[in-house]
């Protein structure tokens, strides 16, 4: 039913991603789909990484770690934009098309700072993407 599942992750709140990652992994196992974690960051230093390279490596390590934990092969896609707070939605839209994902599994309603933003992102992706979208409430 699905061949490629995309999971947007916020590495600054990685611990809050578990539920969405579990859902995505079990769907990937069920349908034999490939799993791809996408992260969006800036080229200026962030709380996650000092450089874009470091961000890509941390995302890749996250993917490998989750893949091992759930016994599934997972890849990662680091997207660097100039103004991540604003360009995240657009970056996700482009990446969904770019990697040819047919299902997006997304964590929404993280508490605190991301609460407002992430709820908006999930709604945006659901409204704009051709892929199926599964919003996982925290």
């Amino acid at each position: 039913m699905f061949t490629k599942i995309l999971v947007p992750v916020d590495l600054a709140h990685a611990e809050k991603m578990d539920k969405a990652v579990r859902v995505a992994s079990s769907l990937a196992q069920t349908y034999g789909a490939a799993l791809c974690f996408v992260g969006v960051s800036s080229d200026a230093p962030t709380s996650v990484a000092h450089t874009p390279d470091e961000f890509a490596q941390k995302l890749s390590a996250f993917a490998a770690d989750k893949g091992a934990a759930y016994g599934i092969a997972a890849v990662s896609e680091a997207v660097i934009v100039n103004d991540p707070a604003v360009e995240l939605n657009h970056a996700l839209d482009k990446t969904i098309d770019g990697v040819g994902a047919d299902l997006v599994v997304m964590a929404t309603h993280l508490p605190g700072v991301s609460d407002y933003i992430w709820a908006g992102h999930g709604a945006h992706v659901a409204a704009h993407s051709k892929a199926s979208v599964f919003l996982v409430r925290d």
Binding site: A44, V113, Y116
Partner: peptide, 11 residues
């Protein structure tokens, strides 16, 4: 504190 990805309402 140098974050370029702070929440939008702040800017």
């Amino acid at each position: 504190g140098g974050k370029v990805d702070a929440p939008i309402p702040q800017r």
